[in-house]
Design a protein around this nucleic acid. Structure first.
Lengths: 135, 135
DNA sequence: CTTATTGAATTACACTTGTAAATGAAAGGC
DNA sequence: GCCTTTCATTTACAAGTGTAATTCAATAAG
């Protein structure tokens, strides 16, 4: 009964398309997959069906073909995957993980500045919260 | 022939123990696994064997039992997993990912400051590089 | 109406993963 | 030297994944 079904690597590709443009037909999904992915129609339909079984997506009949739409939000799924990744690789330590990314990734000056702004905002928000009497 | 074998979730737990203290016997691995993991000895030995097959670890006989040690570094594996995660969930955009984590994770003031320091350092390093004539 | 086409649903099949049990081999106990 | 214990190796087996082919059902073409 867990809220968010486990979505496999291939299924993620399908979900990303559906999140981007739903409702959408199987045919359109095939077309909108990134060019470097070369799956047969059948393969794509298999993934669609598995996502249906997992209740990750739903559909509405529209004459001959189905229009699929997400039943779980990208937000939720990203969060779930991130949690799982974090736990597996960094034992759950978010700051460790961010540190690692900051050090490994080559970020542009712009990006670094943006991140600093976000951090500063977060800091200010927390200070405000701390100065309130705790409920 | 890819450098870093794919390490499953359970196998990661084993690897983390081996990275922490190697060379190490199967028995010790069992003992050093986090307390909330309850695998039978056999299960742990299965994972160890799979890691051997994948060439993620090696061993040296020492009389009755084996002493296992890593053949791939934690660094490498973390990097590989991160890449894979990044690609799957964020389409490869590292800054997006970091942003997301900063916003979702509850970081303490200390952690935020530490991250800011890291960012500042990175920024300074990049400026230095930029002021050099490009090779 | 019969046939060809086009989705969707079912079936397939090998590989991985989680979870062990069974078997084999070596070493220690007596 | 035989029996038990203890590792390691082999085998097991169901669920999930990657990758489709096959079958079924409805629609379009003639």
């Amino acid at each position: 009964m867990q809220r968010i079904p486990k979505i496999s690597e291939s299924e993620w590709e399908i979900m990303k398309v559906i999140w981007r443009s739903s409702p959408i037909t199987a045919e359109q999904i095939v077309l909108q997959l990134p060019a470097d992915i070369e799956w047969s129609d059948q393969t794509v339909r298999t993934f669609i069906n598995r996502l249906l079984k997992k209740n990750a997506i739903g559909f509405e009949k529209s004459g001959r073909s189905y229009h699929y739409y997400p039943l779980v939000s990208e937000q939720e799924c990203v969060r779930a995957e991130s949690q799982s990744f974090l736990k597996r690789v960094f034992g759950g330590a978010a700051d460790l993980m961010v540190t690692n990314f900051l050090e490994e990734a080559h970020l542009s000056d712009k990006e670094i500045e943006r991140l600093q702004r976000i951090l500063t905002e977060k800091q200010e928000k927390q200070e405000k919260k701390d100065s309130r009497p705790k409920a």
